[in-house]
Design a protein around this nucleic acid. Structure first.
Lengths: 229, 229
DNA sequence: GGTCATTTGTTCGTATGTATA
DNA sequence: GTATACATACGAACAAATGAC
């Protein structure tokens, strides 16, 4: 029934298989895992082995088990969880400074490497920003804004930068929403990054970098102003 | 309204305690942990509970267990392990671009926030670079160079930036050493960052940034040249 | 080379608490 | 309130690997 000791323990093998199923997107965030009985058959392991593998992934932050209701996917990557924890240990300002560093590099690389598909995605998302601003919906606007930024980072064609940016921005998002909603002087038109898109379109590296620098500086001042209230 | 029974399980409590003992340096990398029997008494838990906590930390990459021999500390932080794995999945070029982003931001912040202690540490490490260059010892020079860069990042007074930089640079280091040793045209005097230190000393932000930009660009070209050979 | 104590690895059983139906 | 299923924690016994004598 069970094979003799291979290099990896049975538990580790199951852990890796589940990890892969999650990171590949086969099981999405929020999805409920099949019942234990079914997973036992699927991986061909005993109940104890399966449970131990699940516990390891719970501790890693990828899964969450709830009595009675089962286990659900909580995060898509162990890397994301580790970064998330790091962000929680840091101040908003510190995290924002790191984000600026990544965003400035991304803008520069995007201006160099962007292809037609990238420009299309960025143009599309900036249209969403415009629509949301016309409706006056802050929440919707911020979501569209994130999509634009992610599209720009994607246009840098650096997967590591992309992952870092995504997992640093995500836990920061709720704080940003609070700040923006609390901002009485919020001005949509100032927040839509037409000039940045133009700079990347024209492959003007310097213009892209300086635009990022100014808008993050504004953002910084805004946070300071609100936090002092 | 759901009542969140966020009471931590015993296993989680033990995990956190061990994690803290490692991250605080009480147990250093390479150290052997006390035997399970002793740890059971120390944490006042059963063997199964203790073992599950240890297994979680083994999976996280902090510990390594060997049957018959014992348990040793393998890494000092879970964040470092996660980042290390991410770097291994990425190309040298990608990682270098991320490093540039962090280093540029660090140089800028260091130029603004450096204090006398920071300047002292940077001056000291640049002296080490000079000494190694006079001896013609590449290995020693590179080690001193790392110390200088870490001192600069520390001078940015952003802990998150510091941790990210450290854990991204570390796994990159062996690759860099290979490249530098293989470089027939290696010129020490070009690699000592006197001008960067001067810019930070004078709090000249622009000069610091532009110096980082040029030296990383040179580094990039060097890698491309060597990889093409 | 072999024996033995030590240490981790594995599996079982039991008691208690807790969420769901 | 009761019953059921699941989670948690403990204890014990045995297997397997290691290292020292």
């Amino acid at each position: 029934m069970l094979k003799k000791t291979e290099r990896l323990s049975l538990v580790e093998q199951v852990v890796i298989q589940i990890e892969h199923l999650i990171e590949s997107g086969h099981w999405q965030i929020g999805d409920q895992l099949p019942a234990e009985m079914q997973l036992m058959k699927e991986f061909d392991v005993s109940r104890n082995t399966l449970r131990e593998a699940i516990r390891a992934l719970v501790h890693a932050g990828l899964l969450e088990t709830k009595q009675g209701s089962g286990t659900v996917v909580k995060s898509s990557s162990a890397f994301g969880v580790a970064l998330h924890r790091q962000v929680e240990k840091s101040s908003i300002m510190e995290t924002l400074e790191v984000r600026l560093a990544l965003e400035r590099e991304a803008a520069q690389l995007a201006a160099i490497r962007r292809n037609d598909l990238d420009l299309e995605a960025m143009t599309e998302s900036i249209q969403l920003c415009k629509l949301a601003s016309e409706k006056g919906d802050v929440q919707e606007f911020l979501q569209a804004d994130i999509i634009f930024h992610k599209a720009m980072v994607k246009a840098s064609h650096n997967k590591m930068l992309e992952r870092l940016y995504e997992h640093i921005t995500e836990p920061l998002q709720s704080s940003i929403e609070e700040i923006m909603v609390a901002d009485a002087y919020f001005n949509y038109s100032e927040e839509i990054h037409y000039e940045l898109l133009e700079a990347i379109k024209k492959q003007d590296v310097q213009a892209a970098i300086s635009y990022v620098n100014t808008y993050i500086n504004d953002f910084r001042k805004k946070i300071k102003r609100i936090q002092e209230d």
